[in-house]
Design a protein around this nucleic acid. Structure first.
Lengths: 191, 191
DNA sequence: ACCTGAACACCGTTCAAGT
DNA sequence: ACCTGAACACCGTTCAAGT
């Protein structure tokens, strides 16, 4: 008779999947689990999502979009010293990665062929880093400098979240050392 | 009657799993696929391996052990300048990550609670980095310096292998920039 | 002592039938 | 137009029975 109204939404599904991801890792993101969270039966999910792989890709894209918002809010003022602005971006990323560790781990994970959506969103998120790097080393050297900085921050946080720093010593100090060494060093190399 | 002789080995199983991983990603590592490769039926695998998760953990540990061999062979001579020795280690890691991209991605991946085996093997692999870092910045600052260097190299290679560097420019040059900036910068910070 | 077929539980996915 | 029960394929895992 009358068409039944939608009982859930793609956004609610992605949110439920992301919650399950953070609670129990990728294996915990089952179609049955997601369906139960949004109050629907598993087959209904396929009206909003192609399959489980596409759902995980949507979760990664969602996380990258959120990171983009976080970083644009942490880029500081154009008048501030670029070294300080870069440090602000680095700390904002680390705080984000601690808040959403499993989603952060998916940002640069290989999700199979044809999955550029998360990478494009991540590239958008990296925009402020390139901008501030341009202030630090000039427009020509901005891209490689941003790549170096992003690599360090991403690598450090993934190792940290994986529990790879187990030999003692202050992990905070090591992060600070990396940020300041790169900010100063990149400026000097370009200058 | 007479006990049947072993028709495969744990090493062969791990090797087959690692091959499948590199060919098709984690999803391609099925117990049936591994069993077929080693010429046995799936239930027989459980004589050598607790379950699939333990098999993947063994693959990661195997890859980390191989990395340890690669890096100790690339640490250079004690007489060489530490900056050059660090660059050699960085390039050796990158070459290894390109040869075994999916296994490298598993090195610092969260494999669930109680899976320190790969992390311990990775720590062993990082030993030469700490040693050379000590030559560069002294024994007290060696650990944080090694953490910074390892984070950069790991982060850069994972982003590279995920296809995250899509804005043009020379990726090789960016890697070189990171390595030299860190080697010089860390030395100056400590000095 | 290791191997296997058969069986089971679980999960992703499809589809015809309902409203 | 969306939702669902039923069904199917596939995979991880167990176990009794073989040698």
């Amino acid at each position: 008779m009358s068409p039944t109204p939608a009982r859930t939404s793609r956004a609610a599904i992605v949110r439920a999947a992301r919650d399950l991801l953070e609670e129990g890792g990728p294996d915990a993101v089952t179609m049955a689990g997601v369906a139960a969270r949004v109050g629907v039966r598993p087959p209904s999910l396929y009206k909003r999502v192609r399959d489980r792989a596409a759902l995980l890709e949507a979760v990664a894209t969602d996380a990258a979009d959120e990171l983009a918002t976080v970083l644009s809010g942490a880029a500081g003022e154009p008048g501030d010293p670029p070294e300080e602005r870069l440090a602000g971006l680095a700390h904002a990323y680390r705080a984000y990665a601690r808040r959403s560790p499993r989603a952060a781990a998916m940002l640069f994970m290989d999700l199979g062929p044809g999955t550029h959506a998360p990478l494009e969103a991540a590239a958008r998120a990296a925009r402020p880093v390139v901008d501030v790097a341009a202030d630090l080393v000039g427009p020509d050297a901005a891209l490689p400098a941003a790549r170096v900085l992003t690599s360090f921050v991403h690598g450090f946080t993934s190792m940290e979240l994986a529990g790879a720093f187990r030999l003692g010593g202050s992990v905070d100090d090591a992060f600070e050392l990396g940020v300041t060494t790169l900010a100063r060093g990149l400026r000097d190399v370009a200058g």
